[in-house]
């Protein structure tokens, strides 16, 4: 396989995953905005979406007011925002197009149709009434992409690289969301009575990572607690967006890749090292080290892994 092909498959998956993550952040922001008690649109709920995707500053430079119209324009349709849904879908498709010969017709059609239909949407028509359906549609298209990939693609190196892209992005997204909100997840906030402010943040974090319902199954007493939420999203492998789950998958894929090629590269060792660390860690140790420090370090390691992978396999 060409190094460039490996790179395109990696980034195709990565950008698709990112589009879905941005969409979910917007869903959380929207929900906050409509249920805010003041009755009028409360811009601060959108701040969560903007800061989690790291584009708060860019937004402030372009727009005066924090409202649905502006946030949607910036995070969904903007050509300037490199993390907008539009930009992610476009790059995902360009990467797929560059490797048309390495992906299945089903997968290509899923990606291409998403892009065509997305382009047919007039941003002016996205209002409070239509945004939820539109976001749900993007989400479903992402699931279709992933389903088409898992159901049709040959289990060879191309599959492995696309999995790497998917889970590197997902791990990065989870770690960043937690890190943006880390102060609401410090164990101290557990003992602040009532804590309705944290409660909102907690459920926003869980929703942004599709974990609100599954949390209740994972922790039978179902009470939202900072310690449990942090543990759930960092260390519990059964949570499909936790750091531990992502690295479980990455490490397994790394083993498959080593077996497929018949040789081990440094990136594969790095993957299993990160995975082992996560599986051996206790939440208490993470708090001792400092949650913020731990997450920052993780984001760095995740990046280092992606970089090493691209060096080991000649991503162009």
């Amino acid at each position: 396989m060409l190094g460039r092909t490996a790179s395109s498959l990696f980034w195709m998956s990565r950008y698709h995953e990112r589009a879905q993550n941005v969409t979910r952040l917007l869903e959380v922001g929207f929900r906050g905005a409509i249920i805010s008690h003041s009755g009028q649109e409360d811009g601060t709920h959108w701040t969560f979406a903007l800061s989690c995707s790291g584009c708060e500053k860019d937004f402030a430079q372009k727009y005066d007011e924090l409202n649905l119209r502006n946030v949607a324009a910036f995070m969904i349709f903007s050509k300037d925002n490199s993390d907008s849904v539009r930009h992610c879908l476009e790059l995902a498709r360009n990467n797929a197009r560059a490797v048309r010969t390495s992906i299945t017709a089903e997968l290509w059609e899923a990606i291409n149709t998403t892009w065509i239909e997305f382009n047919e949407v007039n941003p002016q028509t996205i209002t409070q009434d239509t945004l939820p359906d539109f976001l749900a549609w993007v989400n479903q298209r992402s699931h279709l992409f992933r389903g088409a990939l898992l159901n049709t693609i040959l289990r060879d190196d191309g599959y492995f690289f696309s999995q790497m892209g998917n889970f590197v992005e997902r791990a990065d997204n989870t770690a960043r969301i937690l890190n943006t909100q880390y102060w609401t997840l410090l164990p101290d906030s557990d003992i602040v009575e009532d804590g309705s402010a944290e409660r909102y943040q907690w459920s926003a974090i869980l929703r942004a990572l599709s974990g609100r319902r599954s949390y209740r199954f994972a922790y039978p007493n179902a009470r939202l607690k900072a310690f449990n939420i942090a543990e759930f999203l960092i260390l519990r492998t059964e949570m499909p967006r936790s750091l531990a789950h992502c690295y479980d998958w990455i490490a397994d894929t790394a083993e498959d890749l080593a077996q497929f090629y018949g040789s081990r590269e440094p990136s594969l060792d790095l993957a299993s090292e990160i995975s082992r660390e996560l599986s051996e860690k206790q939440m208490r140790e993470i708090y001792q080290q400092g949650l913020h420090e731990f997450l920052t370090e993780f984001v760095g390691k995740n990046n280092q892994f992606a970089k090493q992978l691209s060096e080991d396999y000649n991503f162009a």
Partner: peptide, 29 residues
């Protein structure tokens, strides 16, 4: 892309190829 796909061969760009000792190679993983 169509032709590469239907022949079952790689679709390459110039940057995927290089010449070494008078032979042409493609950069693979």
């Amino acid at each position: 892309a169509f032709l590469a796909d239907s022949m079952g061969v790689e679709l390459v760009e110039g940057r995927d190829l290089f010449v070494d000792s008078g032979k042409v190679f493609m950069r693979t993983t």
